[in-house]
Amino acid sequence: MPAKQSKSQKVALVTGAARGIGLATARLFIEEGWLVAALDRDADALQKAAADLGQAASAFVCDVSDPGAVDRTVADVLSRFGRIDALVNNAGVADFGPIEQTDFARWRRVMETNLDGVFLMSQAVTPALKDTKGALVNIASISGLRASTLRVAYGTSKAAVIQLTKQQAAELGEYGIRANCVCPGPVRTKLAMAVHTQDIIDAYHDAIPLNRYGTEREIAEVIVFLCSEKASYVTGQVIASDGGFESTGVGLPALRK
């Protein structure tokens, strides 16, 4: 049974919370004294994650690309907690392939979660964020800041999320709502390590000034900071948490010490 909520206790709604960056973010919010509404469309993985997070988290199964499901779930979250102080739009899908092999159905599968889902969740939660003068944090990607092969749908969706964030900051600031965007670079997730060959790992290390992948926890630290009062005058910003990857372009391993 979820822990009893104090009237002043803040509530974060995190999408894509069953694994990876979303789960790490939910865990850090709880460490900081927040309650968490953890959303994901993978019911089994979500229940397992919620059990790991403990009483401060409540699980809500939701496909963020479904407008009806989003509205029902946000209503359920408000019924459970009575407030929402931060929305972290983390849910996303990664589908990489050549432009010529990306048919419209494949394009839409990426857009409906990565872009439509951010729009739908933000719109549904905005009235609650007005009440709390809360924060929006959208998770884009380094692929939204710089182009690379095989990412025509994914990279475009994340670039659109960056622009959506700026639109939200411009329009919602008068209500005290802050909107910011985090763009993770290469992150050492279980999935990435399962599919990245040693050649890929070496190439990333050569291109990243910090010479390593990031961790899920490091991305979560940036997200939770942006939702906190410590970032009370920060809005409309796009922060690449990427070890310097976006700033350097092509790595030159022969010039490294």
Results as ranks from 00 to 15, higher is better:
residue 45 A to S: 15
residue 6 S to A: 13
residue 121 M to G: 08
residue 148 S to Q: 11
residue 226 L to I: 10
residue 163 Q to W: 02
residue 208 I to N: 04
residue 118 V to G: 02
residue 69 A to V: 08
residue 197 T to G: 12
residue 72 R to E: 14
residue 157 S to G: 03
residue 237 Q to H: 10
residue 164 L to V: 04
residue 37 A to N: 07
residue 205 H to C: 09
residue 224 V to D: 00
residue 120 L to W: 07
residue 188 R to T: 03
residue 60 F to A: 11
residue 72 R to T: 14
residue 108 R to N: 12
residue 171 E to P: 02
residue 50 A to P: 09
residue 76 D to Q: 14
residue 146 R to N: 12
residue 53 L to Q: 07
residue 124 A to I: 00
residue 174 E to G: 11
residue 154 Y to K: 10
residue 159 A to D: 06
residue 132 T to K: 03
residue 41 R to E: 10
residue 247 S to A: 15
residue 101 Q to T: 11
residue 114 N to Q: 06
residue 1 M to E: 11
residue 73 T to E: 06
residue 35 L to S: 12
residue 44 D to C: 00
residue 229 E to A: 07
residue 114 N to A: 03
residue 73 T to M: 04
residue 244 G to N: 03
residue 79 S to A: 14
residue 148 S to M: 11
residue 163 Q to N: 12
residue 157 S to Y: 03
residue 151 R to I: 04
residue 139 I to S: 09
residue 99 I to E: 05
residue 156 T to M: 07
residue 17 A to F: 00
residue 206 D to H: 11
residue 185 G to N: 03
residue 198 Q to D: 15
residue 42 D to E: 09
residue 1 M to G: 15
residue 248 T to L: 15
residue 38 A to L: 02
residue 82 G to T: 08
residue 39 L to P: 13
residue 46 L to V: 11
residue 185 G to R: 01
residue 215 T to K: 07
residue 218 E to Y: 00
residue 114 N to V: 01
residue 182 V to Q: 04
residue 173 G to Y: 02
residue 209 P to T: 04
residue 31 E to L: 12
residue 111 M to C: 01
residue 133 K to T: 09
residue 2 P to N: 10
residue 137 V to R: 08
residue 233 Y to W: 08
residue 71 D to N: 13
residue 113 T to L: 10
residue 135 A to R: 09
residue 234 V to R: 09
residue 216 E to D: 08
residue 115 L to D: 05
residue 127 P to R: 02
residue 255 L to S: 14
residue 244 G to D: 04
residue 72 R to F: 08
residue 181 C to I: 01
residue 11 V to W: 07
residue 212 R to T: 09
residue 192 A to R: 10
residue 40 D to Q: 09
residue 252 L to W: 06
residue 69 A to M: 13
residue 216 E to M: 13
residue 22 G to F: 00
residue 145 L to G: 13
residue 140 A to N: 07
residue 174 E to W: 00
residue 256 R to P: 11
residue 183 C to Q: 05
residue 198 Q to N: 13
residue 14 V to K: 03
residue 225 F to T: 04
residue 247 S to K: 10
residue 32 E to H: 14
residue 156 T to P: 01
residue 73 T to S: 12
residue 64 V to Q: 13
residue 219 I to M: 08
residue 157 S to H: 03
